[in-house]
Amino acid sequence: MLEINDIIKPENLVYGKTPVLTDSVMHYCPGCSHGVVHKILAQVIEEMGIQEQTIGVAPVGCAVFAYNYIDIDWHEAAHGRAPAVATGIKRLLPEKMVFTYQGDGDLAAIGTAETIHACNRGENIVIIFINNGIYGMTGGQMAPTTIEGMPASTCPFGRTPERDGYPLKMSEILATLPGTCYVTRQAVHTAAHVRKTKKALVKAFENQKMRKGTSIVEVVSTCSSGWKMTPVNANKWMVDNMFPFYKLGDLKNE
């Protein structure tokens, strides 16, 4: 009879850690979507063979330390300024692959101007947008994308549009700009969705190679700590509450 140890052999390996991901243990909470997106981003960089020419721009937010986990050159930007930083890099190094990795507070609140104008100029960059509807790093405050009724530490009884304004559909706005070539909204809560998001990232980087303009990959994500749920329940809550408002799929694909 076949033993497990007969299977665990190098020739049978079907899924392992990409060397583009460093060996550092991620500081993220258990079940955090950041880890999954970091992983598939690293896989895409490896599989496309672009590790030596890719420069990432990390945000302020939980992903501030993204540079500890993906083994490429990085800039750590001020809060919201990543698209401007990426513009500076890409304009001066047009042959390199440049991406930003930003959360909802970074991209859709404090960095709204930088995001919209980088996209409107059609900067040849990839923007990865993690939308979990909350400020994770500072302890669960309301984000521009917090959905109506959703509680956060600065709207403990739920977001009330009359007081807090409405949740912002940033990808829908960006899709209207002529500078963007690809705007898609994905998720990473199931294996199938992870694979789809990875394909979206490949497409985004291919667009950059072809100089087609700005590609935005939004990933609707969970923040189990901020939402005060288990990771499994956070995924369920996201499917039931976030997806009806933030509908998955391509918003633009040119």
Binding site: N12, Y15, R195
Partner: peptide
Amino acid sequence: TNCATVCPDSCITVYR
């Protein structure tokens, strides 16, 4: 590979 695919901490290696 579904388990490894959704693992946020890349701590699962799969053999088949």
